[in-house]
Design a protein around this nucleic acid. Sequence first.
DNA 1: CTTCTGACTGGGA
DNA 2: GTCCCAGCCAGAA
Length: 114
Amino acid sequence: MGRAEDGNFFESVYALVRCIPAGRVTTYGTIAGLLTGRQGAARTVGWALHGLPEEIVDEVPWWRVINAQGRISTSCEIHSAGEQRDRLESEGIVFGANDRVDLSRFGWWGDDEQ
DNA sequence: CTTCTGACTGGGA
DNA sequence: GTCCCAGCCAGAA
């Protein structure tokens, strides 16, 4: 599934995000690493989700993607951080005192286990 | 082709 | 602990 296919980097990102099980979260750098093998492409991953088409916005759990600090960095006004946090809480994700998620517990690194 | 930007990351202040 | 700066990659203008 998630693989840096020919130029369909965005498609690969969507496909991988789609594989993230409910109640789990991952980071942009992780996705970038699994796809291109380069963690530096994390920004591009965020950009891909930023340009997420409305037609598949409900299929791709973009809210399960956060930064390496376990925090929400979204700048998107439409998909606000508040909405993302609400969606995550609905799936069982627990936020810390400063709106932080424990990646050691909820972090998903591409394992098949769900 | 060159240039800029972005839902990032890590290190230093 | 939080805030700021520079580096990173891929895509759009």
